[in-house]
Design a protein around this nucleic acid. Sequence first.
DNA 1: AAAATACATCGTAATATTGCGATATAATAA
DNA 2: TTATTATATCGCAATATTACGATGTATTTT
Lengths: 109, 109
Amino acid sequence: MGATKTDLFTQQQNEIAAMAKALAHPARIAILQYLVKKNACVCGDLVDELGLAQATTSQHLKELKTAGIIQGTIEGVSVCYCINPKVWKQYKELFNAFFKEVDLQQTCC
Amino acid sequence: MGATKTDLFTQQQNEIAAMAKALAHPARIAILQYLVKKNACVCGDLVDELGLAQATTSQHLKELKTAGIIQGTIEGVSVCYCINPKVWKQYKELFNAFFKEVDLQQTCC
DNA sequence: AAAATACATCGTAATATTGCGATATAATAA
DNA sequence: TTATTATATCGCAATATTACGATGTATTTT
Protein backbone atom coordinates (compact mmCIF):
# COMPACT_ATOMS: atom_id res chain seq x y z
CA MET A 1 0.00 0.00 0.00
CA GLY A 2 0.99 3.61 0.01
CA ALA A 3 0.20 4.30 -3.61
CA THR A 4 -2.99 6.09 -4.59
CA LYS A 5 -5.66 3.79 -6.04
CA THR A 6 -6.36 5.86 -9.13
CA ASP A 7 -8.41 3.09 -10.72
CA LEU A 8 -11.18 3.67 -8.19
CA PHE A 9 -11.83 7.18 -9.45
CA THR A 10 -12.95 8.89 -12.62
CA GLN A 11 -10.46 10.43 -14.99
CA GLN A 12 -11.79 13.85 -14.09
CA GLN A 13 -11.30 13.23 -10.39
CA ASN A 14 -7.75 12.06 -10.97
CA GLU A 15 -7.11 15.05 -13.19
CA ILE A 16 -8.32 17.61 -10.67
CA ALA A 17 -6.32 15.89 -7.94
CA ALA A 18 -3.20 15.92 -10.14
CA MET A 19 -3.63 19.63 -10.82
CA ALA A 20 -4.08 20.32 -7.13
CA LYS A 21 -0.98 18.26 -6.39
CA ALA A 22 1.08 20.44 -8.72
CA LEU A 23 -0.01 23.45 -6.64
CA ALA A 24 0.37 21.69 -3.30
CA HIS A 25 3.74 23.15 -2.36
CA PRO A 26 4.47 26.77 -1.39
CA ALA A 27 7.65 26.80 -3.51
CA ARG A 28 5.63 25.95 -6.59
CA ILE A 29 3.06 28.61 -5.75
CA ALA A 30 5.92 31.08 -5.32
CA ILE A 31 7.41 30.07 -8.68
CA LEU A 32 4.09 30.52 -10.47
CA GLN A 33 3.45 33.88 -8.81
CA TYR A 34 6.92 35.04 -9.75
CA LEU A 35 6.43 33.96 -13.36
CA VAL A 36 3.06 35.68 -13.54
CA LYS A 37 4.48 38.85 -12.03
CA LYS A 38 7.58 39.01 -14.22
CA ASN A 39 5.68 37.75 -17.27
CA ALA A 40 9.00 37.51 -19.05
CA CYS A 41 10.64 34.27 -18.06
CA VAL A 42 13.43 34.45 -15.59
CA CYS A 43 15.06 31.33 -14.22
CA GLY A 44 18.33 31.37 -12.29
CA ASP A 45 16.73 34.15 -10.27
CA LEU A 46 14.33 31.61 -8.81
CA VAL A 47 17.09 30.02 -6.79
CA ASP A 48 17.81 33.37 -5.10
CA GLU A 49 14.14 34.26 -4.97
CA LEU A 50 13.09 31.05 -3.22
CA GLY A 51 16.07 30.42 -0.95
CA LEU A 52 16.07 26.75 -1.80
CA ALA A 53 19.04 24.85 -3.20
CA GLN A 54 19.52 24.81 -6.94
CA ALA A 55 18.76 21.10 -7.13
CA THR A 56 15.54 21.52 -5.17
CA THR A 57 14.42 24.48 -7.26
CA SER A 58 15.11 22.55 -10.44
CA GLN A 59 13.06 19.67 -9.11
CA HIS A 60 10.04 21.89 -8.42
CA LEU A 61 10.38 23.38 -11.89
CA LYS A 62 10.38 19.89 -13.32
CA GLU A 63 7.17 19.02 -11.52
CA LEU A 64 5.46 22.13 -12.81
CA LYS A 65 6.73 21.34 -16.30
CA THR A 66 5.48 17.76 -16.05
CA ALA A 67 2.11 19.09 -14.96
CA GLY A 68 2.23 21.23 -18.09
CA ILE A 69 1.57 24.54 -16.37
CA ILE A 70 4.99 25.97 -17.24
CA GLN A 71 7.33 25.53 -20.16
CA GLY A 72 11.07 25.99 -20.52
CA THR A 73 13.11 26.97 -23.51
CA ILE A 74 16.87 26.79 -23.78
CA GLU A 75 18.24 30.28 -24.13
CA GLY A 76 21.95 30.09 -24.59
CA VAL A 77 23.48 28.80 -21.42
CA SER A 78 20.35 29.17 -19.34
CA VAL A 79 16.73 28.05 -19.54
CA CYS A 80 13.86 30.46 -19.76
CA TYR A 81 10.71 29.37 -17.99
CA CYS A 82 7.26 30.81 -18.37
CA ILE A 83 3.63 30.02 -17.81
CA ASN A 84 1.94 27.89 -20.45
CA PRO A 85 -1.11 30.07 -21.04
CA LYS A 86 -3.20 27.29 -22.52
CA VAL A 87 -2.72 24.96 -19.55
CA TRP A 88 -3.04 27.86 -17.11
CA LYS A 89 -6.46 28.51 -18.59
CA GLN A 90 -7.36 24.84 -18.25
CA TYR A 91 -6.43 24.87 -14.58
CA LYS A 92 -8.45 27.99 -14.06
CA GLU A 93 -11.50 26.57 -15.79
CA LEU A 94 -11.32 23.21 -14.09
CA PHE A 95 -11.08 24.76 -10.63
CA ASN A 96 -13.81 27.21 -11.54
CA ALA A 97 -16.05 24.34 -12.61
CA PHE A 98 -15.26 22.44 -9.44
CA PHE A 99 -16.09 25.38 -7.19
CA LYS A 100 -18.94 26.69 -9.31
CA GLU A 101 -21.95 28.11 -7.60
CA VAL A 102 -23.56 25.46 -5.51
CA ASP A 103 -26.54 25.83 -3.23
CA LEU A 104 -24.48 26.26 -0.09
CA GLN A 105 -26.28 28.92 1.90
CA GLN A 106 -27.57 26.51 4.47
CA THR A 107 -25.47 24.26 6.59
CA CYS A 108 -26.94 20.79 6.76
CA CYS A 109 -26.98 18.58 9.88
CA MET B 1 15.26 17.03 5.11
CA GLY B 2 11.97 15.81 3.75
CA ALA B 3 9.85 18.42 5.46
CA THR B 4 8.60 21.46 3.60
CA LYS B 5 10.45 24.67 4.49
CA THR B 6 7.37 26.77 5.16
CA ASP B 7 9.39 29.56 6.74
CA LEU B 8 10.79 30.48 3.33
CA PHE B 9 7.38 31.42 1.99
CA THR B 10 4.66 33.92 2.68
CA GLN B 11 1.61 32.99 4.70
CA GLN B 12 -0.49 33.35 1.60
CA GLN B 13 1.72 30.99 -0.36
CA ASN B 14 1.60 28.41 2.41
CA GLU B 15 -2.15 28.84 2.64
CA ILE B 16 -2.79 28.29 -1.06
CA ALA B 17 -0.48 25.28 -1.03
CA ALA B 18 -2.30 23.85 1.99
CA MET B 19 -5.65 24.26 0.27
CA ALA B 20 -4.32 22.61 -2.87
CA LYS B 21 -2.96 19.79 -0.74
CA ALA B 22 -6.40 19.12 0.70
CA LEU B 23 -7.65 18.67 -2.87
CA ALA B 24 -4.62 16.70 -4.03
CA HIS B 25 -6.17 13.24 -3.82
CA PRO B 26 -8.90 11.81 -6.06
CA ALA B 27 -10.70 10.28 -3.08
CA ARG B 28 -11.03 13.71 -1.49
CA ILE B 29 -12.25 15.20 -4.75
CA ALA B 30 -14.77 12.37 -4.98
CA ILE B 31 -15.92 13.00 -1.40
CA LEU B 32 -16.41 16.71 -2.04
CA GLN B 33 -18.28 16.09 -5.30
CA TYR B 34 -20.50 13.58 -3.56
CA LEU B 35 -21.25 16.02 -0.75
CA VAL B 36 -22.00 18.80 -3.22
CA LYS B 37 -24.27 16.54 -5.25
CA LYS B 38 -26.19 15.13 -2.30
CA ASN B 39 -26.19 18.45 -0.48
CA ALA B 40 -27.63 16.66 2.51
CA CYS B 41 -24.80 15.00 4.37
CA VAL B 42 -24.40 11.30 3.97
CA CYS B 43 -21.48 9.45 5.48
CA GLY B 44 -21.33 5.67 5.74
CA ASP B 45 -22.30 5.71 2.07
CA LEU B 46 -18.91 7.16 1.26
CA VAL B 47 -17.21 3.88 2.08
CA ASP B 48 -19.37 2.10 -0.53
CA GLU B 49 -19.18 5.04 -2.89
CA LEU B 50 -15.39 5.23 -2.87
CA GLY B 51 -14.45 1.59 -2.64
CA LEU B 52 -11.78 2.33 -0.07
CA ALA B 53 -11.57 0.72 3.34
CA GLN B 54 -13.49 2.32 6.18
CA ALA B 55 -10.30 3.38 7.91
CA THR B 56 -8.94 4.99 4.77
CA THR B 57 -12.17 6.81 4.07
CA SER B 58 -12.28 8.08 7.63
CA GLN B 59 -8.71 9.32 7.27
CA HIS B 60 -9.54 11.31 4.14
CA LEU B 61 -12.58 12.78 5.86
CA LYS B 62 -10.36 13.83 8.74
CA GLU B 63 -8.00 15.64 6.39
CA LEU B 64 -10.85 17.50 4.76
CA LYS B 65 -12.19 18.37 8.19
CA THR B 66 -8.78 19.57 9.36
CA ALA B 67 -8.58 21.73 6.23
CA GLY B 68 -11.95 23.11 7.29
CA ILE B 69 -13.73 22.48 4.01
CA ILE B 70 -16.14 19.96 5.50
CA GLN B 71 -17.76 19.59 8.88
CA GLY B 72 -19.18 16.59 10.71
CA THR B 73 -21.97 16.40 13.21
CA ILE B 74 -22.83 13.41 15.33
CA GLU B 75 -26.25 12.18 14.36
CA GLY B 76 -27.22 9.31 16.61
CA VAL B 77 -24.96 6.41 15.86
CA SER B 78 -23.49 7.91 12.72
CA VAL B 79 -21.76 11.12 11.70
CA CYS B 80 -23.21 13.47 9.13
CA TYR B 81 -20.70 15.27 6.98
CA CYS B 82 -21.27 18.27 4.79
CA ILE B 83 -19.50 21.08 3.04
CA ASN B 84 -18.62 24.08 5.18
CA PRO B 85 -20.04 26.79 2.91
CA LYS B 86 -17.93 29.55 4.39
CA VAL B 87 -14.65 27.75 3.84
CA TRP B 88 -15.79 26.48 0.45
CA LYS B 89 -16.28 30.10 -0.55
CA GLN B 90 -12.82 30.98 0.74
CA TYR B 91 -11.25 28.21 -1.34
CA LYS B 92 -13.16 29.37 -4.37
CA GLU B 93 -12.08 32.96 -3.91
CA LEU B 94 -8.47 32.17 -3.19
CA PHE B 95 -8.14 29.99 -6.28
CA ASN B 96 -10.00 32.58 -8.32
CA ALA B 97 -7.61 35.25 -7.14
CA PHE B 98 -4.65 33.06 -7.90
CA PHE B 99 -5.82 32.30 -11.43
CA LYS B 100 -7.30 35.71 -12.07
CA GLU B 101 -6.94 37.23 -15.48
CA VAL B 102 -3.32 37.68 -16.29
CA ASP B 103 -1.83 38.91 -19.51
CA LEU B 104 -1.13 35.46 -20.86
CA GLN B 105 -1.94 35.72 -24.54
CA GLN B 106 1.64 35.59 -25.64
CA THR B 107 4.09 32.88 -24.83
CA CYS B 108 7.42 34.31 -23.84
CA CYS B 109 10.80 32.82 -24.84
C1' DA C 1 -26.80 -5.19 30.63
C1' DA C 2 -25.32 -7.14 26.20
C1' DA C 3 -25.17 -6.92 21.26
C1' DA C 4 -25.05 -4.26 17.26
C1' DT C 5 -23.87 -0.31 14.49
C1' DA C 6 -21.04 3.52 12.88
C1' DC C 7 -16.87 5.87 13.14
C1' DA C 8 -12.33 7.05 14.88
C1' DT C 9 -7.82 5.91 15.99
C1' DC C 10 -3.60 2.99 16.36
C1' DG C 11 0.01 0.53 14.38
C1' DT C 12 2.35 -0.73 10.51
C1' DA C 13 3.88 -1.43 5.64
C1' DA C 14 4.48 0.50 1.11
C1' DT C 15 5.29 4.35 -1.45
C1' DA C 16 5.89 9.38 -2.44
C1' DT C 17 7.73 13.87 -1.50
C1' DT C 18 11.11 17.17 -0.03
C1' DG C 19 15.68 18.69 0.19
C1' DC C 20 20.50 18.81 -0.74
C1' DG C 21 25.34 17.70 -2.06
C1' DA C 22 27.73 15.81 -5.73
C1' DT C 23 28.13 15.07 -10.32
C1' DA C 24 26.70 15.15 -15.25
C1' DT C 25 25.49 17.86 -19.31
C1' DA C 26 25.43 21.45 -22.56
C1' DA C 27 26.43 25.98 -24.22
C1' DT C 28 29.22 30.04 -24.20
C1' DA C 29 33.67 32.50 -23.10
C1' DA C 30 38.50 32.76 -22.77
C1' DT D 1 40.76 23.38 -26.28
C1' DT D 2 39.91 24.51 -21.72
C1' DA D 3 37.42 27.13 -18.39
C1' DT D 4 33.10 28.96 -16.94
C1' DT D 5 28.25 29.22 -16.30
C1' DA D 6 23.57 27.44 -15.89
C1' DT D 7 20.75 23.80 -15.31
C1' DA D 8 19.56 18.81 -14.85
C1' DT D 9 20.01 14.49 -12.76
C1' DC D 10 21.69 10.99 -9.33
C1' DG D 11 21.86 9.19 -4.86
C1' DC D 12 20.64 9.49 -0.45
C1' DA D 13 18.36 10.77 4.07
C1' DA D 14 14.37 12.62 6.42
C1' DT D 15 9.69 13.02 6.46
C1' DA D 16 4.88 12.63 4.70
C1' DT D 17 1.12 10.20 2.54
C1' DT D 18 -1.74 6.32 1.43
C1' DA D 19 -3.87 2.22 2.71
C1' DC D 20 -5.66 -1.28 5.68
C1' DG D 21 -6.50 -4.57 9.59
C1' DA D 22 -7.28 -4.43 14.31
C1' DT D 23 -9.01 -2.26 18.05
C1' DG D 24 -11.25 1.54 20.71
C1' DT D 25 -15.37 4.46 21.57
C1' DA D 26 -19.94 6.00 21.72
C1' DT D 27 -24.75 5.51 20.67
C1' DT D 28 -28.73 2.82 19.81
C1' DT D 29 -31.23 -1.74 19.94
C1' DT D 30 -32.54 -5.78 21.95
